[in-house]
């Protein structure tokens, strides 16, 4: 439970998950912002107005999944690093996960990484497909990782394997 230990429960996650049908259609955002806090940069970040306007900045973001095309611009604009993009049909066996990444060193393309879930537990391996770190992102890189489809909904962070015994 978020309030208890920072890890959302399945019920809490249910609130922010795009529908299964939408996930099947291709890249889409998942905004894991489940608390009413005063914050609105996501609304301004989206060029397609997929974030509904805030009546009050304390509202939780509301997303129009029909407008979202998974472009990922919003990822680097969320102060809470709570926005991810999921591409479920990415390939036959893999889904694509895009995460915000503010650590050094940055992973490299084609690098194999350990995949972690929301509690920081290892749930598998992934392959870095792309690392985006433009000036507009202001030092919040976006890392795209291909992961087995069955862990896509749980995968939320990566750990580099270089320099470790297993690496």
């Amino acid at each position: 439970m978020l309030k208890k230990d920072g890890v959302p429960s399945p019920e809490e996650l249910q609130e922010v998950k795009p529908s299964f049908e939408r996930l099947q259609e291709g890249p889409v955002v998942i905004v894991e912002c489940m608390q009413e806090i005063p914050c609105d940069p996501c609304y301004y970040a989206c060029p397609r107005e997929a974030f509904r306007p805030f009546d009050d900045i304390n509202q939780k973001p509301e997303i129009d999944y029909k407008k979202c095309n998974g472009c990922s611009i919003c990822i680097a604009h969320c102060p809470g690093l709570a926005i991810f993009v999921l591409d479920y049909p990415y390939s036959e066996n893999e889904g694509l996960l895009k995460i915000p990444y503010e650590l050094k060193p940055l992973p490299e393309k084609e690098e194999e990484v350990t995949v972690l879930n929301r509690a920081g537990e290892e749930i598998g391996r992934g392959r870095v497909v792309h690392v985006l770190n433009t000036k507009k992102q202001d030092r919040t890189a976006i890392v795209s990782v291909a992961v087995p489809k069955d862990i896509l909904m749980d995968a939320r962070h990566i750990r580099l394997r270089r320099g470790t015994d297993e690496g």
Binding site: E102, L103, K104, P105, R139, A141
Partner: peptide, 9 residues
């Protein structure tokens, strides 16, 4: 120990 490679600073 000095911090060498920082993502932000």
């Amino acid at each position: 120990m000095r911090i060498k490679d920082h993502p932000i600073l």
